[in-house]
Design a protein around this nucleic acid. Structure first.
Length: 542
RNA sequence: GGGUCUAUGGCUCAGCCAGGUAGAGCGCAGGACUCUUAAUCCUGCUGUCGUGGGUCCGAAUCCCACUAGACCCGCCA
């Protein structure tokens, strides 16, 4: 009966031409749309380049990483459809430093408004502040196995790669200024040129105001005066100068810069966060109408928010970074997070790691056919998600699955010699058959999680005289030579003999030994820790 | 002023972006591990899917309106 209906539905679905595109994920759909659009535009499809911008002004959080990871996913999908593609990772290291990120030294204050690539690295390991921040992000990408073509704003401008675009934009500045006001209501570019030179005297960016462009010489006239950065007024140095747009340092304003880059690098796809939606609208127009380069295909995504629903700020210190994530979760758990979906607001925290770790195992089971889903399209999509999570390079055999939450629980209990003890427990439980290097790794990760996110059960241990007597008896038993299998019973009997409710006695023991109100079966557990050691601990309470 | 997202069990959320049986964790109830307490495991319970319309054979899912909350833009990048 049911089958007949399902066939009926399937017929319907195929009549509606619901063919699965690529591997059935949003990534494939996006790549497909993109290819169709390029064909309609009649542009060459010999190289479909995708881009991701990397902020370089603060500690890169998982959102910045997500932009690049997802762009890479699109690249993979394009290749899967038979096209050549590459990912350009572009570091905005000519952006000026606007405020000192939390936790970084105060002396950065004197570098406010300077391009981050001209500020010394506070950590002392890279050529500049900007390069340090970019490197953190690139390191994150490397850890995930993502390949990219790295480019820097500083080199791009210094080598004059954008000079033609800058020239065209500046000679059309009036038209652009009017359009910006019309599109987003921002009027300043009706007065000023959308180009910020770096002041040759004081190295500052936003204080140098450009007031005239000399097309024949490709030079900008500017004066360095006071400007408002954030909520603070910043004094300019009063310098007046000329900047050569083909080689001197300076940069286009964001409202027009993407367009210049898209044209110069021939970019066909770039995702963006909703915070720069307006800039993208303007840039699309500039790209289409001023530079005659049909703008790249886009997809908009929501920001990652912290658990309180606040925007994760790049300049705040305490955020979810890929480096911290990998302390608790595998690279694949992070890729799964980023490839699962792109739409929707997301409140994100480390507490999502356990779910993702286990979810990876679930989709792996689907991929290898161990678990069947009812719906064909969903099966395809889930398999596709698994493939992208493995960057289209799937393992030949499934990994050994151990529930991550179980490992966290065990991690809270076993702190010393953790890997060996937990492995032994897992074998006792029948979860695994033999020790395994991969499982060792997961135990480490879950152990780190247990250590850093221990739920602090603040409780007062109340011990009455009867309990104290019982505890003393127990210590006697523990230090004596005794057959371990009797221990569970012995504890139970000691409680009863001393008129203590077994339930309460066990709880007291957990509180003393674990600092928690519950725990594993206590007899074997005490044997695991060592009788003498437990006797000592209990002794302190008698 | 402009824009986006969110609303699903007691709690936290997944499912929605490619419509086809309403899901998970926590919690709660019962059971298994020779006995009593707990880890763990198994089973079960908890739903007018924010409101009102629309499309469809079929809507948590797509469209429109509304309500409530959050966020982004209107400095700058």
């Amino acid at each position: 009966m049911v089958h007949i209906w399902q066939n009926h539905w399937c017929d319907r679905m195929s009549e509606d031409d619901q063919k699965i595109i690529g591997r059935g994920t949003w990534i494939d759909k996006l790549a497909h749309e993109m290819i169709e659009r390029e064909q309609q535009l009649g542009r060459s499809t010999s190289m479909l380049r995708v881009e991701s911008g990397l902020g370089a002004s603060g500690i890169p959080h998982i959102g910045s990483l997500g932009d690049a990871v997802r762009a890479y996913g699109v690249k993979l999908a394009l290749e899967n459809f038979g096209y050549k593609s590459e990912l350009v990772a572009y570091s905005d290291d000519l952006d000026g430093l606007r405020k000192i990120p939390e936790g970084l030294p105060d002396w950065l204050g004197e570098h406010i408004a300077k391009p981050v690539s001209l500020i010394p690295d506070p950590f002392g390991c890279h050529d500049s502040y900007g390069m340090h921040m970019s490197s953190l992000l690139l390191d994150g990408l490397d850890n995930l196995g993502i390949k990219y073509d790295f480019r820097r704003a500083r080199d791009t401008y210094k080598n004059g790669l954008l000079k033609d675009q800058i020239h065209t934009i500046l000679t059309n500045s009036e038209k652009i200024g009017t359009k910006i006001a019309e599109l987003v209501g921002q009027e300043k570019y009706q007065k000023y040129l959308p180009y910020y030179p770096v002041c040759a005297n004081c190295n500052r960016l936003y204080t140098a105001e450009s007031y005239e462009y000399i097309p024949d010489e490709m030079k900008i006239k500017y004066r360095c005066h006071e400007a408002e950065i954030g909520s603070k007024m910043l004094k300019g140095c009063g310098h007046e100068g000329e900047a050569d747009i083909t080689k001197d340092l300076g940069k286009l304003a964001w409202k027009v810069e993407f367009a210049a880059r898209w044209h110069a690098f021939d970019i066909r796809f770039e995702a963006y966060g909703k915070d720069i939606m307006d800039s993208v609208r303007v840039n699309d127009w500039v790209s289409d109408e001023i530079l005659n380069h049909p703008h790249p295909h886009h997809v908009k995504y929501e920001m990652f928010l912290d658990k309180g629903g606040k925007k994760i700020s790049k300049s705040l210190g305490n955020v979810v970074t890929s480096q911290k994530w990998l302390k608790y979760g595998t690279p694949k758990s992070m890729l799964l997070l980023l490839y699962k979906r792109i739409t929707g607001a997301r409140e994100l925290g480390f507490e999502d790691i356990p779910t993702l770790m286990d979810e990876y195992n679930e989709i792996e089971d689907v991929y290898f056919g161990k678990v069947k889903l009812d719906n064909e399209a969903k099966t395809a999509r889930t398999k596709g998600l698994y493939e992208y999570t493995n960057l289209l390079n799937v393992p030949k055999t499934p990994s050994i699955h151990v529930n991550y939450r179980l490992l966290i629980e065990l991690g809270r209990i076993f702190k010393e010699d953790r890997v060996n003890r937990i492995t032994k427990k897992l074998i006792d439980y029948g979860v695994i058959k033999n020790p395994d290097p991969y499982i060792d790794q997961i135990i480490q990760l879950a152990g780190n999680y247990a250590d850093d996110f221990e739920e602090q059960e603040i409780m007062q241990i109340q011990i009455n005289d009867a309990t104290k007597n019982a505890l003393r008896k127990l210590v006697d038993v523990l230090v004596a030579e005794k057959d371990p299998e009797d221990l569970q019973n012995a504890i139970y009997n000691i409680a009863k003999e001393n008129n203590v409710l077994p339930k309460d006695f066990f709880m007291t023991l957990y509180q003393i030994i674990l600092g928690a109100s519950r725990g594993p079966k206590i007899g074997p557990f005490i044997m695991d820790i060592g009788r003498n050691k437990v006797a000592q601990t209990i002794g302190k309470y008698t």
